[in-house]
Design a protein around this nucleic acid. Sequence first.
DNA 1: AACGGAAATGAAAACCATTTTCATTTGTGC
DNA 2: GCACAAATGAAAATGGTTTTCATTTCCGTT
Lengths: 121, 121
Amino acid sequence: MSRSNPRVLSTLERAGGFASAQEIYRLMQREGESIGLTTVYRALQSLVNDKIVDVLRRDDGEAIYRLCGEAHHHHLVCKGCGDTVEIEGGAIEKWAKMMAEEHGFRDVGHTAEIFGLCAKC
Amino acid sequence: MSRSNPRVLSTLERAGGFASAQEIYRLMQREGESIGLTTVYRALQSLVNDKIVDVLRRDDGEAIYRLCGEAHHHHLVCKGCGDTVEIEGGAIEKWAKMMAEEHGFRDVGHTAEIFGLCAKC
DNA sequence: AACGGAAATGAAAACCATTTTCATTTGTGC
DNA sequence: GCACAAATGAAAATGGTTTTCATTTCCGTT
């Protein structure tokens, strides 16, 4: 039942370990790989089930997939120009762990994004 | 140009300051208010522009709207049963402020959600 | 009160990411 | 080679959100 298509995984890796299904699909097309959008979605779902990738949501609602193994980081996004800076979140990791423990949750992940206006905007 | 329909705002307040457009629409219908879904969406957009409400995304991609004035808190969500606990995020506020400062960002906000499995699941 | 233009409204259509359906192809064990 | 399961992808369905456009409501001016 493992539909974890290796071509999809490797494309996700090549994309910097961070991309939406549509982006992965377009990327594969551009590189001449023959694949259907459906298969991309299925492969990603499968990778999520197998906990090889995580899902988050972009602000526009599109789902983005990220390799779990990736150095975990967060984003500082400019509301004006869309510029994004990757930032460390050590404090957040601890906070998430503490909060989860306190409420008896296990197997936890988290998302955290900061948005504002950058120096130029 | 202010399309910030007060009936929509008051319904959002009544919903606990936290609801999706569809939920607000259904709530208003149930209460016998005559309004179109389009108007609800427009009113919410307008409230977001005026910084009276914020938007976040639920895991399924649906946008949820929240009164800005609300005591700012975060959520610990169970992936199994969907149960949600509101938690404090003092550490996060500081982290967000620091990171923003460090990169010259101003007028910053943030989102942070923790998800995992609750004790029952 | 009547008129005219601007803003608001909402039904229906368009949009777009995602999921489902289903017929076809591919792969594997016999 | 054969049969059966799994994988594939085109096309249709789904569902939240946005757009279009014709109609209605508001307001300020006569």
